[in-house]
Design a protein around this nucleic acid. Sequence first.
DNA 1: AATCGTCGCAACCGCATGATT
DNA 2: GAATCATGCGGTTGCGACGAT
Length: 292
Amino acid sequence: MDVQGRDCVPKAQSSEEDQMELRRGPWTVEEDFKLIDYIATHGEGRWNSLARCAGLKRTGKSCRLRWLNYLRPDVRHGNITLEEQLLILELHSRWGNRWSKIAQHLPGRTDNEIKNYWRTRVQKHAKQLKCDVSSKQFKDTMRYLWMPRLVERIQAANAASSTSTAAVTTAVVGTEPMVFPDDHHLGGGAQQVTSSSNNNYTLENSSTTAASSDSFGTQVSPVSDFADYYSNISINHNPNPNCFEAGNYHNNGLDFQCLEQNNPWLDTVDGSDNIFDAEDLYFLQQQFNFNM
DNA sequence: AATCGTCGCAACCGCATGATT
DNA sequence: GAATCATGCGGTTGCGACGAT
């Protein structure tokens, strides 16, 4: 793409235009078209001069952000899939708030979107747990409950889909292959999440289909109950990670069908945004009762 | 129907770093 | 090597949508 010599407006003139007020706030459809049109013809880069040449009264920064986060053809919108959630949790636990680095491993997702996801969903629940997202308490909850639970849901979704569809050879999220980091402890390439006897979850080369929808967004229990619930328990480091192994915890003598019938949270399918569903909550409660 | 509070997300801001002059 | 410019990143804010009262 030719981004050389883009200066269509002499510097002196452009500084005059700088005096002209720059537009801020939400982008209009016309502005979007201008930007798309211009980039289609001339390519990205040199954002300040691009903004001028495209006739946009925006800063180069603003144009770049609009393009990267919204207009780019390969950008994906919509719910974060279960696999993506798992990957975000995993990568964040490793890299912290390195959003752009994390985004590199989620095709079509932007750092901004992942950051927003983390702030609005994950941090909210840390708040409900009355602990900091960086605290060991919260990290343990993620690692020993949330992530295995995600694995289980992904497996369930895969099992359901495999009964009706032929196996595919790559992990797929939407139309994009999901690429797990090369330095992942279990190796790179297209991988499937699965349970493990010595880990809470693993990713291994296999086939999978994206489990759709935000698992937080479709679960039950009012937020206030959720917060109250956690205020009454303390989360310790899990002494026996295998207990949390996806697919195994049903064997702990819990009758989830019964629980679901008797759990008041399940009566309120309100679409509120919660990390755990009722099974998780009850399971967690059982675990902590054991450890008390 | 009106008001209020909360949530989610797009966009902005400041700073750091790299590239160019 | 210094100055300037461009880009990228992470944190923060503003606002529309939506639900509760």
